[in-house]
């Protein structure tokens, strides 16, 4: 038995070394994502599944639907040709950066604002959607704008979203609670865990559409241009993404998708977002 174990431990160590040697050479994050995607005919996208209008799980079919999902599919066809497949992986604001940095996904299209801090660690495409941060409150709430967020109020935000940093700047007295995704955050608002929920207007309008007892108030107090995020150094994929985005804007696909998802959302101005 002891002999057996000695042999086994040698084997295990050898196996581990091989794994490390095989792996260490090329962590996924460092490989050229575009070349790999072309070889596999598949681009792996991180998309939201908790955000109405952008990316929401359809319980009936078990698939994710929304503007960003349609964009991901259209962009994939542009980049990889008609055979190209878009593989969708669920992300949240909380998990999207580690998944990009780690290499779990090639690109993220998930209501992600282009910010200088994020640009230090990620590549961004040109903006595909111009949102602005706003507030969602119960219909009978006293809070009408960010000015009403005084000491003693609680605002719900989502981990990993820059809206949390923004609200701290414009309403420093309010207490911020961060939940892991938008579904949890909206449930927390409905459970009276906070007085308002803050994030970008597009997402908030989706929540208001789902449950009209909650309304978007105060207009937008920031500018949030959404970009497609890729890992730092993926220049080829970033260039291909920008080219594909331009083509979709020129051939009318982009406008069609915007109209499909945001055309009949009350209170939402589709001219502002493009």
């Amino acid at each position: 038995m002891k002999k057996l174990f000695k042999r086994m431990s040698v084997l295990l160590a050898a196996g581990f070394l091989i794994l490390v040697a095989a792996g260490c050479g090329k962590p996924l994050a460092d490989q050229d994502a575009l070349a790999r995607a072309k070889k596999a005919d598949t681009l792996v996208w991180g998309v939201k599944a908790d955000t109405r209008l952008f990316g929401l799980m359809d319980v009936k079919t078990g698939s994710i639907k929304g503007f960003e999902v349609d964009m991901a599919k259209a962009l994939t066809k542009q980049i990889l040709g008609s055979k190209g497949k878009a593989e969708l992986v669920q992300i949240t604001s909380d998990t999207r950066v580690p998944m990009l940095k780690g290499g779990n996904v090639d690109a993220v299209i998930g209501t992600m604002t282009i910010t200088p801090e994020r640009q230090k660690v990620l590549n961004f495409s040109d903006s595909y959607f111009n949102a602005g941060q706003s507030l969602l409150v119960p219909k009978d709430s006293k809070i009408k704008s960010v000015k009403d967020l005084t000491a003693g109020t609680k605002v719900i935000g989502v981990q990993g979203s820059n809206s949390v940093d923004n609200i701290r700047k414009v309403a420093p007295a309010t207490k911020v609670l961060q939940l892991s995704d938008y579904a949890q955050a909206f449930t927390a608002l409905k459970s009276h865990q906070g007085d308002a929920l803050t994030t970008d207007n597009g997402i908030l309008y989706g929540m208001s559409q789902q449950d009209p007892r909650y309304v978007v108030v105060g207009g937008s107090f920031t500018k949030e241009p959404y970009g497609i995020a890729m890992n730092k150094g993926q220049t080829n994929l970033t260039n291909a993404m920008n080219k594909a985005l331009k083509t979709l804007r020129q051939n009318g696909t982009y406008e069609k998708l915007i109209n499909k998802w945001f055309g009949d959302v009350p209170g939402f101005d589709i001219k502002e977002v493009g």
Partner: peptide, 12 residues
């Protein structure tokens, strides 16, 4: 989940 791709494994 986040470390596996570092050794070249992309597991779903």
């Amino acid at each position: 989940y986040f470390a596996l791709p570092n050794i070249g494994l992309r597991l779903s």
